[in-house]
């Protein structure tokens, strides 16, 4: 455990000694801030119209602000995660520092978990910074706490899957650009896979929609924690990291 932390700590700091963390976080917050502002003003306008024309109750804060906000956040993470993970192993291999890790008394599993933890911590930092939006909502209105908590949880799981994919691709190449591009492509693939499920047959449709990363997020967005979704996300992350282990181990044999 101490070894995992040693590696995670170094990698987390490395994000902040290079411009990566600042650019990713700044970009993320700029887009999120714009989205939040836009969602909020649109929601207010709609509510005002509902009241004016006595059309009954408008959408709740959860439906009108929280869900679209987190939906957008998940898309943004799809774009940003490749930048977060691409360096993790590719750079170590290019700089030959992987040899330091591999000749230290730490296991490959500890190295991989350390890397995963460092990227998860960066995502966590980004998520903590977005707490300002729900806090604003609580100060000015009365949103439901539940869906906000589960949305964060779902986002962590979903982003964890992207990170796991990103680490896998980063372990396959010395070239960060290649790693990043493959991560983005694969993330998009698992995102859009559910589209095909509608036209596929009954069995394949189920399989494809089960494999869809975004499909498993829907429950979280509505404030529901379903064990199926949790198990899916955890297995997805686990398989990604396991394959990374196989890839890195195979390099030793060549």
């Amino acid at each position: 455990m101490r070894n995992i932390w040693t590696i995670a700590r170094r990698d987390f700091r490395a994000y902040f000694t290079s411009p990566i963390a600042y650019i990713v976080i700044a970009g993320f917050l700029a887009i999120m801030g714009w989205m939040f502002f836009w969602n909020l003003s649109h929601f207010n306008l709609q509510n005002l119209q509902y009241q004016q024309f006595r059309m009954g109750k408008g959408a709740s804060i959860t439906e009108g602000i929280i869900r679209p906000l987190f939906g957008n956040m998940n898309v943004i993470f799809l774009f940003l995660v490749p930048f977060i993970t691409m360096r993790l192993f590719a750079e170590e291999r290019k700089q030959h520092t992987i040899e330091l890790l591999m000749t230290s008394p730490v296991t490959l599993t500890e190295i991989i978990l350390g890397k995963f933890l460092s990227s998860l911590l960066l995502v966590g930092t980004m998520l903590v910074l977005t707490l300002v939006y729900p806090i604003t909502l609580f100060l000015t209105g009365n949103p439901d706490l539940g869906p906000i908590v589960t949305s964060y949880l779902g986002t962590i799981f979903l982003t964890g899957c992207y990170l796991s994919l990103g680490i896998l691709f980063s372990s396959m190449t010395e070239n960060q650009i290649v790693a990043g591009a493959l991560t983005f492509a694969a993330g998009l693939f698992f995102w859009l896979i559910s589209w095909a499920s509608q036209s596929a047959g009954a069995v394949w449709g189920d399989v494809l929609s089960y494999l869809s990363l975004i499909g498993h997020y829907n429950n979280f967005g509505q404030g529901i924690i379903n064990s199926t979704d949790v198990v899916f996300y955890l297995s997805f992350i686990g398989i990604g990291l396991f394959l990374t282990h196989r890839v890195l181990d195979s390099f030793r044999w060549r």
Binding site: R10, H96, I98, E99, T103
Partner: peptide, 12 residues
């Protein structure tokens, strides 16, 4: 172990 290329992180 000191490998052929010193395994150092340039940003540290």
């Amino acid at each position: 172990y000191l490998p052929e290329n010193p395994p150092v992180y340039s940003e540290m």
